[in-house]
Design a protein around this nucleic acid. Sequence first.
DNA 1: AAAAAAC
Length: 505
Amino acid sequence: MNFADLGLSDQLLRAVNESGYTEPTAIQASAIPSVLMMRDLIGIAQTGTGKTASFVLPMIDILAEGRSRARMPRSLILEPTRELAAQVAENFEKYGKYHKLSMALLIGGVSMGDQLAALEKGVDVLIATPGRLMDLFNRGKIMLNGCSLLVIDEADRMLDMGFIPDIEEICTKLPANRQTLLFSATMPPVIKKLADKFLTNPKQIEVSRPASANLQIEQRIVECSARGKKDALLDILRADDVTTAIIFSNRKTTVRDLASSLSRAGFKAGQIQGDMDQGDRIKELDRFKAGDITVLVASDVAARGLDVKGVSHVINYDVPWHPDDYVHRIGRTGRAGATGKAFTLATPEDAEAVANIEKLTSTKIPRVAKAEVAPARAPSKAAVSDDEAPVEKKSRVRKRPGAKSNEVAAPEAREPRPAREPREPRAEREPRPEREARSERESRPEREPRPEREPRPERQARQDRDPRPEREARPAPRPAPISDDGPDDGWNGPMPDFLNFKLGS
DNA sequence: AAAAAAC
């Protein structure tokens, strides 16, 4: 199967080609022809499957005919978060480079000026989060009766976020004879009802969850006490193959605390969470993409769909409340055929949440104990027993530098180690994650580059198979001699065994 | 339980 077989225009194929892609993913192969035939569509899929390109590509060709009129957008894409909306907009720019389509990105947190100006001129594509869209609509700045193509992306996420009433209202403002595409990772009854109400004879396409079936991601549960989390985190971050990591926490406050603790510990760390204003969110994300920061501490605002290349590790500092979120979070690594590791720090209280995750993904995630992790670190710390110390209830992560057990160890604070090659395989100590036949069957092998994970247009084809295409600005990975004793980087302690499993193979 | 999304 080739992109050329899907009925797309030559200009579009050229843009796709120049992005380095030749072979469509499963969802693209089945969705694109139907969308081009103007059928309604239900796509049970999430990002990482090539979902975005499966509607962006045919939309570009559909919209290539016809003209936009002032305040009457011709198509509308709804996204649950601002970041996702921005990402879809980037896709339109990339694949629409040989088309003259106009676009407006309507998201909150930024000034309305540009958005209003774009609307006034008339746009072919509106990419929006519901809040800002409704706001502008209620101000009379948008007419939706010329909008003949609607995409509802991440519908289940919209549900979680309470957007369904907004979505329904928006649907009623669009012409009835429109084309509607709905994407959702799951199909809870509310979403099913929504689809029945607003879609006509839709074609249904289902592709597997990429993360649960993604053999490129090595997963581990790190069993630790609540107080041992920070140490475990540091050990992971100092492991030799961590190049860039996203650390997820369940709370915005924890995100903030961790980001500042890690910065103080010498990591190039940043954060992204919903209390930050949009400008800062974008800035942090850009710094992360550019490699100015190598550790991004994030709330679940970044869990879904976020496409950053070359993330070597995802660390769940907290076990996510919803098992779905786990799948989304770890899907931030192992992208574009690269390998990745996902660690989840779990306390005994997290047992149920962990069980739910394993049930959802139908895998047993190997456990490693935090006890083995805590290496003799700095002499100054020796006095403090880390393990069964009296429980401190409320004390947040840290107070003053020099505070004890919960402190991120500062004495040996330094740059995290530079990127380098994965270590030689050692004697295999950890059980390998189960790899069932079903994953093979369900998941497309992740070898081919895919449109959703493309290096930016200016850096193309050459890097197709480079797991970290956007990061050449950084110090090049040093082919450092590989010593089983761990490198001499000032981290005085043995490499914790649990970090020492090998990727791939 | 938490986070996200409009001014």
